[in-house]
């Protein structure tokens, strides 16, 4: 059974159909990409999948569970975690606190334990710390655990956002333009990391990206959007050949630079 099942997802903003009849059936462990020109509705789909925009039509099922009508924090708790196109870190908190903040719903120490700082609470904090450091080390950030997030270099901030999302132990991870504004070497590094997440940890991932040379080599499937409609779907090789895609998105010819 598919882990994420989306049917006929549509949304209108005052008569403008931003997304129309978006369908997606995502298997566990799959890595797919949603591509399309600016304004095609990619981030809008992410906003619907995380509960920020309630869709005007359609259904979202995660692991057979209907998520519609829930609040964004409940989408996250149910297992859909995301990163943002324009980085949204908790910028005045340390790197490790950023990660620990994503675990708030999972920790179960109560208020009085917390303000009295009981030994049980301290032990839970210690375990949480270890878990956070472990995740940070996956992305090479463990050395900067105590740095204030806003002082991190840009690329590291993007990676921290992914670590923070992973802290939720998500069933599906949504990455909104994870390499936007990165230079080529950083881009290769990120491609490697995303691949590892998927191969070593079996993470199910949906990507939004413009960099074709980042997307093409690592994903299983691509969904192409234009003006809110799905115009093509298939493996990277199929997509590259599809004349509709070339016309709508890649323009005259695909040279690997979007």
């Amino acid at each position: 059974m598919a882990i994420l099942e989306v049917k006929n997802l549509s949304i209108e903003f005052g008569g403008l159909k931003a997304v129309e009849d978006f369908n997606l059936s995502l298997e566990k462990g799959e890595l797919i990409a949603i591509i399309g020109p600016n304004g095609a509705g990619k981030t809008t789909i992410f906003n619907m999948l995380t509960g920020i925009y309630p869709p005007s039509n359609g259904t979202i099922h995660l692991d057979g569970e209907n998520l519609l009508g829930r609040k964004p924090f409940q989408f996250a708790q149910a297992g859909i975690a995301r990163t943002f196109q324009n980085i949204r870190l908790f910028s005045n908190a340390s790197v490790i606190d950023n990660v620990k903040m994503a675990n708030t719903a999972d920790s179960n120490e109560n208020f009085f334990e917390s303000i009295l700082r009981t030994p049980g609470m301290v032990e839970k904090e210690r375990q949480l710390d270890e878990h956070a450091l472990e995740l940070l080390s996956l992305f090479g950030l463990e050395g900067q655990a105590d740095t204030i997030a806003k002082n991190l270099p840009y690329g590291a901030q993007r990676r921290l956002e992914i670590v923070r999302a992973l802290m939720l132990n998500p069933k599906v991870l949504l990455l909104d333009e994870p390499v936007a504004g990165m230079i080529t070497t950083e881009l290769d590094e990120m491609a490697q990391l995303v691949k590892e997440l998927r191969e070593k940890h079996g993470q199910t991932i949906i990507l939004i990206e413009h960099h074709m040379n980042f997307v093409m080599p690592i994903v299983d499937r691509i969904i192409v959007l234009n003006f809110g409609k799905t115009i093509s779907e298939g493996t990277p090789a199929e997509i590259q050949k599809d004349p509709r895609v070339i016309e709508a998105y890649l323009g005259g010819g695909f040279h690997g630079n979007a």
Partner: peptide
């Protein structure tokens, strides 16, 4: 602090703001 720094992100990280 998460709510103070970025309420949208706090919400997206499962925090019942």
């Amino acid at each position: 602090i998460a709510i103070r720094d970025n309420e949208i992100a706090a919400d997206a990280m499962g925090i019942n703001t």
